[in-house]
């Protein structure tokens, strides 16, 4: 059964059409990769799914578990299980990480009909999860993403992913700005979250992340559409021949 279904998606930013008829199906439990050159519309795809203002869907539909997301705000989508790991996690000075994490976890749990976690229970849950993504608790005592290194920000995003237990994860260029060790840690965290119910969309420009997070299906996004899909052997082919080689769907 498909968890995510995108039909004939057209997205406009400002007055510029970025996505022009994108189709995508991701069955439950699968990890799909979307690769493409700069400016192909990769980040636009992730923002459109997460519901960022200013990314206007002019045609088509996005459904999660059969339910259309289009009319929903970003928070409602998050509570239905959409998680976006940002290419550039946003710095929010002054906002403490820990109360933020608890507010987010409880907002999502409430929507799922689960009991909210009291401070003690949350802290236990947080510490367990911190361990699984190999992150120091000290980071959660600082302001949200403020003054974090590039690697810390990405790992902090993966921590949030683990805490919120989403159904569908988008990893938007998660490898950008990471050295090989940091990338391995992030990939381990992501791999630990692969389950038969949870699907993932890994957006990347390069092959190297896909050596660590091995996808079931690879799509090539170019000129606002999926131009080609295939198994992971497509990755090596793209690496060898470049994106120029993909010319039509």
């Amino acid at each position: 059964m498909n968890l995510l279904e995108i039909d004939d998606l057209h997205v406009t930013v400002g007055e510029t059409p970025i996505l022009v008829g994108l189709n995508l199906r991701i069955p439950a439990g699968e990890v799909h990769a979307v690769m493409g050159p700069n400016g192909a519309g990769k980040s636009t795809l992730s923002y459109a799914v997460a519901g960022r203002e200013g990314y206007d869907v002019t045609k088509g539909d996005i459904r999660l578990g059969g339910e259309s997301l289009l009319a929903l705000g970003p928070d409602e989508r998050a509570r239905r299980g959409v998680f976006l790991a940002f290419q550039y996690p946003v710095e929010v000075p002054g906002v403490r990480s820990k109360p933020f994490l608890r507010a987010a976890v409880n907002a999502v749990r409430k929507a799922r009909g689960q009991a909210e976690l009291d401070p003690g229970a949350f802290l236990k849950f947080l510490r367990k999860t911190l361990e699984s993504v190999r992150l120091d608790e000290a980071l959660t005592n600082r302001d949200l993403n403020s003054g974090f290194s590039g690697g810390e920000k990405k790992r902090f995003d993966i921590l949030q992913m683990a805490l919120l237990e989403p159904r569908f994860c988008i990893l938007d260029e998660t490898d950008s700005g990471l050295d090989i060790d940091a990338m391995r840690v992030v990939a381990d965290g992501v791999n630990a979250m692969r389950t038969p119910e949870r699907s993932m969309l890994v957006i990347t420009h390069y092959q190297r992340l896909l050596d660590y997070i091995v996808p079931d299906v690879v799509h090539v996004l170019k000129d606002g559409r999926i131009m080609r899909s295939g198994d992971k052997s497509l990755v090596a082919e793209l690496e060898a021949r470049g994106y120029e080689w993909v010319t039509s769907p």
Binding site: G73, V92, V95, A104, D143
Partner: peptide, 24 residues
């Protein structure tokens, strides 16, 4: 958007950002 994408409703997200502004 970042806060909402983590499940906080718009009023909570706003309040949290305002609190952060003050906290500094």
């Amino acid at each position: 958007f970042f806060l909402q994408a983590r499940g906080l409703d718009s009023a909570t997200a706003r309040a949290l950002l305002i609190a952060g502004f003050v906290q500094e």
